[in-house]
Design a protein around this nucleic acid. Sequence first.
DNA 1: ATTAGCAGTCACGTGGGCGGAGTGCCAAGC
DNA 2: GCTTGGCACTCCGCCCACGTGACTGCTAAT
Lengths: 339, 339
Amino acid sequence: MVSERSLAVLRAIVQDYVESREPVGSKSIVERHRFGVSAATIRNDMALLEEEELIAAPHTSSGRIPTDKGYRVFVDRLADIRPLSATQRHAIETFLGESNDLDELLGRTVRLVSQLTRQLAVVQYPSFARARVRHVELVSLAPTRVLCILISDSGQVEQRLAELDQPADEATLARLRDRLNEVAAGLTMADAATALSAETEHADRAHAEVLHTLAATLADQAKITRSDRLVVAGAANLVRTEQDFAGNILGVMEAIEEQVVILRLFGEMAADEGIAVRIGRENAAFGLGDTSVVSTAFAVPGRDVSRLGVVGPTRMDYSQSMAAVRAVARYLSRTLGEN
Amino acid sequence: MVSERSLAVLRAIVQDYVESREPVGSKSIVERHRFGVSAATIRNDMALLEEEELIAAPHTSSGRIPTDKGYRVFVDRLADIRPLSATQRHAIETFLGESNDLDELLGRTVRLVSQLTRQLAVVQYPSFARARVRHVELVSLAPTRVLCILISDSGQVEQRLAELDQPADEATLARLRDRLNEVAAGLTMADAATALSAETEHADRAHAEVLHTLAATLADQAKITRSDRLVVAGAANLVRTEQDFAGNILGVMEAIEEQVVILRLFGEMAADEGIAVRIGRENAAFGLGDTSVVSTAFAVPGRDVSRLGVVGPTRMDYSQSMAAVRAVARYLSRTLGEN
DNA sequence: ATTAGCAGTCACGTGGGCGGAGTGCCAAGC
DNA sequence: GCTTGGCACTCCGCCCACGTGACTGCTAAT
């Protein structure tokens, strides 16, 4: 196999190439890193690495750049994920701590991550499915118009407008609300949805129709999994690194805006433990062949895990990205867990 | 002044240049448009237009491209805003009609507009300031944790978590809620904010502290003007037209992500009636020198007007953009007005 | 006022020559 | 057996010169 030093050379090549965007030659390696050997020796190691397809030369006589496989080895065995600096950790605490609600928290999160990594950042909305119903509220906006509000035990609020076939007065609504609360409170969203649907059946005549509509609306609402939504920030970083995408930056941007692509990708990455990294061709099936994705899960108790990550060119600072993603995900898990 | 035909020539130049991205020459004009004159005559007209600084030649011997001033004349006097096709109007109705709440409606709106115009689309959240309080709801999440929900007469719901110094039981909360509703219901958000703040003063001893916190939270919440938030879609279109921005696409993208820049720009455009168009250098103060913005207001009764628009290169299909923006804004005003 | 014709200008694509960076290999040294 | 210096070779990127083509601007004729 490749020697210890060869791997050190690979690490040097990755680091220098990520920094300079230029193929790195044997000479510049001995200049910039303190290997105790000559350029010729490095060249021998590079020949080895090339045989293993960890690096490649763009043209016959030029420096080398890492292949996808090379980045993979770097990420799996060579990258040291240095913890963030004190300043950066402090920035996370203060900047995210100011958030008032989930929307704002997630919005600030992506902006922060995109600034820390100088990449495009993506965060997935926590799913609703495993949260429990804490309270149902009905507010009459007009005689035949009722706003149904569903409050989960994690403090998330979902609302939906229901149109009734016949008017319902305040008293009726109050009774219905109590009834719906009895039925749904404490259940998970999924269970609540079925329970509410069932409730429709044996309702008393007088308000059957109204109850039906309201229960259906709430059931419908409870079924919504917000986890199919993404928040994105830092698209400018994608443009900044445009030269690293072989001309098809458009494809990448469209994939991001599609959201579905990233969500499917996140779905596949869910299998991996800890910080998952997908590199270049590994994403070819998603039309993201020159793109790497670094992501990790963050957990909200009582909810399915969601993911947080960055998307960028394969020529990316993986160490930095992994460190930032990990730190922010930990913070998120912690704060969201408090509720 | 410039003759009637000269203006027709300007129109032709704008149209052809927008389509082809190439300087247009006298010969191609007589070929593509049915002027009954020769190329030499067109050249004379072009000399006139150049004198008026409506067009310019990138280099001595090449076709002409419109100047910012030329686009301005085109937009003000020459552009015909053709109504959208039946298919397109139908698309607006069906695609936007499926929305369940305001968030979704605005999200669908920007996506639709960016697709119709093939530009980056932006929509401003309707302001909360002039809406009226319909209902206040307090939900206890934990003994010292209360979720304050503010429902406006337009069906918009805002939520905020309050931390109490001392625990409050359900009965107390119910009384407080009734009290707060008495005070705030029917007032505009702005008035409600002051009324709730005032209420803090002469509260009965027992619950002074609790009431204070809740009233302050609600007042704070009522003050939030969501109109300082934007929803954006179609950034890929910016990249698609990258060559039209003299290399500083990054500046434009950063400005968009800043949001503040666009909001200030919208603020200035509010002075104009109908569809406002800002062209190139007119936006230089915002760091958007090569950028044009087409926007118009949409009104939600009881709220301040908000704006909807597209951002793109000066080399943009203004007719199409204006038509799409106008049509969608009208639809928005109509549907939001129904609530 | 319009038109044809013509000379002038400049961007752009092509092809050749040059310099430099970097490799691969070989033979000598430790 | 690994390492090293040296050397020939390759190929990219750059510059320049040249020809081509697409325009314009001007002038004189209609």
